[in-house]
Amino acid sequence: MKTKQLLFLVAPFFLVTGCLNNSDKPPVYEDVEGMVTSNGEPVNNASIHIRNHFNPGGFIVSGQGEEDLTISVNIQDEGLYTGNLYRNGSDTVLATFFNDSLQTGQQEISIPDSLLSNGIFGYEVRNTAVQVAGNLFVISKPDTALPESLPFTRTNANGEFNLNIHYLSIGQSFITGSGGFEVTDSLEIIITDGENVLETEKVKVEPNQVNYFEIILN
């Protein structure tokens, strides 16, 4: 498995909307819901991936997949450390990618590529007392690298899926070392079966209303 340095670290910068006109209410987005069907029947346990649309940039694809991401951590106290992965907007651990002892000094820890589908993620490295490292980063793989990655969610027995709007980061702005970007309300929903990409559909998530999409597999 290849490894690469974590190049696209971002720090959150929340764009305040409606500042110049207090009468304007910011848009409210509901969870994105939908169903996957094939020949009129619901598809159970289909893997649901997403790709965010950025302004500027559009539907950016970066990297080739199958590359672990490497975090450099400065350890001052030798001991047991844990590395946890989160989706941006969630305080629930998505996965624990490291749980082992570390010696003092600059250490490198890898996040397995299999844990990284598309989206904006946060990580933390901590011991029992304090967090020693943490940041946000963006993943946007080519579609062909998604089937072996942990999906955003899966369809249930009725073929239905739910995308938590807070984890999609729609409407949020971020700053990086080279500039900034906003996550727009356009979205790609990518369906896989664990081995192949079955369907990709571009949708627009409208504010202040229910967004429900039926995706039909060809």
Rank of each mutant, 00 (worst) to 15 (best):
H166S: 13
T184S: 04
D100Q: 12
N88P: 06
Y86V: 03
F137Y: 04
G57C: 14
G34Q: 02
G18T: 15
Q5I: 05
R51P: 08
I109M: 04
L136S: 14
P27A: 05
I50P: 08
G105T: 01
N99A: 09
G63I: 07
R154H: 11
E108G: 10
V43F: 06
I139Y: 09
N211F: 02
S72Q: 10
S186Y: 14
N22A: 14
D100T: 09
H49K: 04
L150Q: 14
L116G: 07
N22K: 13
F174W: 10
N158K: 08
G180I: 11
H166T: 11
K4C: 13
L168G: 07
T144A: 13
T17R: 14
L69E: 12
Q76L: 06
S178Q: 13
F13K: 14
K4T: 15
L150K: 13
F213S: 01
N99R: 06
N21G: 13
Y29W: 06
N88Y: 11
Q209T: 11
L85C: 11
L146E: 03
V203T: 02
V125M: 01
C19N: 09
I48W: 13
G89P: 02
G119D: 05
R51T: 05
P26Q: 08
D143A: 12
L102C: 00
F13D: 15
V43A: 02
V73P: 08
E206W: 11
G57R: 15
T104C: 08
Y81H: 00
Q5F: 05
V183M: 06
F98R: 00
N211L: 02
N218V: 12
I71S: 01
N127E: 00
E108H: 08
V32L: 04
I175V: 15
N99D: 11
E201P: 05
I190R: 01
Q64R: 06
K141S: 14
R154C: 09
V32K: 07
V130I: 00
P27W: 01
F121D: 00
L9G: 12
A95P: 12
T200Q: 14
I189P: 03
N52Y: 04
A11E: 11
I111R: 06
V130E: 02
L217S: 08
L198Y: 00
F59I: 00
D24N: 07
F14A: 12
D31M: 05
G63V: 07
Y86T: 03
N118E: 03
K204Q: 15
E108W: 09
T70H: 09
L168E: 02
I71F: 08
L187K: 01
V36Q: 05
G105N: 03
I215P: 05
S62W: 15
L116I: 01
M35T: 14
I48A: 14
L15N: 02
I75A: 01
S140T: 07
T3P: 15
I216Q: 12
F174I: 01
A145P: 11
E30D: 13
P56D: 09
K25M: 14
D91M: 10
G134E: 03
T192K: 06
G177E: 13
E199T: 07
F174K: 00
D143R: 04
V61G: 09
Q172Y: 11
G105D: 03
L9W: 09
N21A: 14
T104P: 03
S140I: 06
R87F: 05
L102M: 02
L115C: 10
S38Q: 12
S38M: 13
G18A: 15
S186P: 09
Q107T: 01
Q76V: 04
S90C: 07
V197D: 03
L217W: 10
V210N: 12
